[in-house]
Design a binder for these strands. Structure first.
Lengths: 253, 253
DNA sequence: CGACAAGTTGATGTTACTCAAAAGTGGTGG
DNA sequence: CCACCACTTTTGAGTAACATCAACTTGTCG
């Protein structure tokens, strides 16, 4: 539950997988060991260009990245963010091109995805749930862009990010580190930078959301959730409630 | 290449799979036989309610269906349509809830998805490409809603539908059957019914798109494509061009 | 200090929504 | 065959949401 970078490497990855499905000690070790071979990319650089041949699926160990599509006239839409602990390019597609551009928002570190030893183990289960979550968040993004106005869209999106960071153990109650500019936020939310700015101001005035110094705070989560009828992913997926704060995760070696 | 319902059952399914990856005779037979056990649902009925436990993955044999999410206040966003020959609920997720509501736009007929005999056969390949296509179309939907205006959005979407129907052999040059009301279209495109109506009128006036009597015609595809810089899915996925009109498909038994 | 990126503000224009009603369409039963 | 109903499409007028354009301010870093 820390906001900074002081956690041992791979903590977010392990925390997330372990919450998706409780891993055995052997599985945690397997994952830990796989994370020694990493690849770093500096902020603002592309990790995978759209159309390049798809490499191995990867997991984001630290930093924030974005999946986007860019149109010929320069307009850009960010399809989804990739948060620490989450996977990029969920499904390997041998021989097929990458469907999106992956770019680094901050400095990022990627690792390979550990191959599960058994098909029916907790690790395989965690990956399956992770895939379902990814799909769920894509659907949310569509519904958000299609049917919510700027104010609601912003609320809904921040609640989702909070939920996802919580999965990786990167929140502190209703506060979390947020290294995203308003311009990037505009590309996520399908609006202009100027309008993002005004919307954030309105939310702050209404006592719902503070974005200051790279940190987001929700002064009143309950009201925030009720404004957009936010449903936790666990409820939508029909999973046994999986987000208690007390779930402890083994430290990475 | 016919617009009506006179084709033998399962033609769309076979045509589509065969274009995604050329099937062997044995595989075509396997698919044909699997399509004898079907389930029919009348127009306007829900096929799978969101939150219900996910059944077997299914393929749409005939008719049009929609994947949607409905919000508490009644607003609805259609995430994607399901066209004849396409799969619903791409990835089976045993034990997890369905992530969307599937509803029948017209009378529809679903069948089970034939299990490939071999992991590396053409059928398995066709499913893999189909999954990639589904993901591609989700990304398109996000970019469309986030970054295109109503006019562009409508063009882009109709071009996509044309491409997808072509895959299943359901187009006749630049014309295809279109059993979708403007109200449904509004829920797909993230706008109101009234605005859909005005946008369609503008497109007709501009000589780009005709929607009449359940049929869509593109008087000028070339210009239509250039207006939104439309890229065929085959190009995005990096597949050998897979849409020649001359691909012949064996008739279902 | 100077330069550049990020955030903020104001004025104005456009897009798309809302509300309300009319006109067209197809199916049903008497 | 016609009257009726429900649904869909169309039209008009007024309004709200969001974009655009163009500064100006603040913060950061070398």
């Amino acid at each position: 539950m820390r906001l900074d970078d002081t956690a041992p490497r791979g903590t977010a990855v392990l925390a997330r997988l372990h919450r998706l499905a409780p891993l055995s000690t052997a599985e945690r070790d397997l994952v830990s060991r796989s994370l020694t071979l990493t690849r770093r990319v500096a902020a603002r650089r592309d990790v995978v260009a759209e159309r390049s041949i798809n490499g191995e699926p990867r997991v984001l160990i630290s930093g924030w990245a974005a999946l986007s599509r860019i149109m010929v006239d320069g307009r850009r839409q960010i399809l989804d963010l990739v948060l620490p602990g989450e996977h990029v390019a969920m499904r390997p597609r041998r021989g097929l091109s990458s469907l999106t551009t992956v770019s680094a928002i901050t400095d990022v570190e990627f690792g390979p995805v550990a191959e599960p030893a058994e098909d029916d183990g907790a690790l395989a289960e965690a990956y399956a749930v992770g895939n379902a979550l990814h799909e769920h968040y894509l659907y949310r993004q569509i519904a958000r862009l299609g049917r919510l106005n700027a104010y609601e869209r912003t609320i809904d999106w921040f609640l989702e990010i909070h939920e996802r960071l919580e999965l990786s153990g990167l929140t502190n109650a209703h506060r979390f580190a947020f290294p995203v500019t308003q311009e990037i936020l505009a590309d996520v939310l399908g609006m202009t930078g100027v309008h993002v700015n005004r919307t954030l101001q309105a939310l702050r005035k209404d006592g719902l959301l503070e974005v200051r110094e790279g940190t987001v705070t929700f002064p009143n989560v309950r009201e925030l959730r009720s404004l957009v009828a936010f449903e936790p992913a666990a409820a939508v997926l029909g999973l046994p409630v999986l987000l208690p704060e007390d779930v402890q995760v083994a430290r990475a070696g």
